[in-house]
Simulated assay, not measured.
Amino acid sequence: MSRPQDAQPARSFFPFGNPFRVIAPKGSHMSSQLLALLKAFEARLAERLSKLMFKSKEEILSLSWMTSAMESLRDTYNDIRTLISDLELPVNDWNDKWIDIYLDISRNVLDICNAFSSEFSRLNTCNLSLKYALHKFDGASSKLFVRAFSSLDDWKHHVHSKNPRIEKCSTILDNLMGSLDLPKVKNSAKGKVLMQAMYGVKVQTVFVCSVFDAAFSGSPKKLIDLDVADMYSWAPAFSRLQSLINEEIRARFSNGKFSVLVELEVVDAVVKEFNPSIQRSAETINNESLLKTIEELSKAEEKLSQGLDLLAKGVDGFFKVVLVSRDDLLSAPTSAKSVKNCAFGSNANQKAIL
């Protein structure tokens, strides 16, 4: 993958070697039915990844694209729930070690979702300063204009501050990457299918979350370059998507942008058009150029607020999918019922597993 010269080295994706070699025991024959289930799952994953390819560079890291990425991840989690139902795995195939691994992974995913939610709250709080400024600009006195410009200064100060919870996401993502080194599956073709499918889910999770982490932290160092083997049918779609997204993010940061979030960068650019030394007089208030800039800020702020709201709902929906599956696993009786009726529930619209 080509990178700008000043780009930081990417973190290694396989610190413990290729995990799939650990989970593919010899002698586990995959029937045509099992192979069809796996191929169908991987085909849907490849299709979701392909749909995240942008038509223009302006779409990269727009809040709309980020919402689509989160919804794609949620759909993949729901898809693996369907796969587990179709496999009809018995409970005794899921020993305590596997359950502990899932609980640890899901805890990390929930922590990341909470960190993202805290960033939405921070940005929405910053936007209150923009809304206040726009409200004061509607006035007809120089005193109100002074307050409006003061609010714009407050926005610039707070929007460039760091979120401590986002700063911790890299550590959480490192924990998720460590979970790729999965335990051995007993001589089970069904187990092999499930592990190969879960590997795809985890790759998509780490990729999407690392992109969000880089965008919210304002640092290309947060990006993770994942090296996926060609043996997976969805690998080409994933590699193309990852290469284009990561390279564009690094290019934007190298060009001096304070944020790669499109809507946030637009607001910042409009705010910079306001001259803080402008005379706050009656003539200034009716200045055509200033009124046009105020109108542009109003539109940019509205688009940013709406985008953040949709993305926040997308993350919340994903959070609930992971939380419900975790609760089901913890409350499931340890009997010989199938996973479909025990660990992962029977509600097709709500249950999922990492």
Rank of each mutant, 00 (worst) to 15 (best):
Y77E: 04
R3D: 14
S170T: 14
F145Y: 14
K221S: 15
K303D: 09
V193W: 15
L173W: 07
L311E: 11
S117Y: 00
C169E: 03
K143C: 01
E295C: 00
S106L: 05
L144D: 14
C209E: 05
V159N: 07
N163D: 13
L38T: 09
S68I: 05
T76E: 06
S217T: 11
E302I: 04
T205G: 05
V339W: 01
E295I: 02
C169R: 10
A215G: 13
L261W: 12
L223C: 08
S289Y: 03
V339H: 06
S68W: 03
D227A: 06
A140Y: 14
S32W: 01
N18C: 13
S188M: 11
N114R: 15
V266K: 13
P4T: 04
L128P: 02
A312V: 01
A269Y: 04
N18Q: 12
A336C: 07
E301W: 03
L329K: 02
I166Q: 06
S2K: 13
F137T: 01
H135M: 11
K340Q: 15
L244A: 05
A36W: 05
F137D: 01
M231T: 12
A215W: 05
L261D: 08
L308E: 09
Y132P: 00
K222D: 04
Y232H: 15
A215D: 08
G218S: 12
A251K: 14
I278K: 12
L180H: 13
R21L: 07
N78H: 11
L304T: 00
L223H: 04
D153C: 07
I224Q: 00
K97M: 10
K162C: 07
L290A: 09
A10N: 08
M195Q: 15
I285R: 10
P276R: 15
F258M: 14
P4Q: 05
F344D: 06
S239V: 14
L130T: 03
A300R: 03
L290G: 04
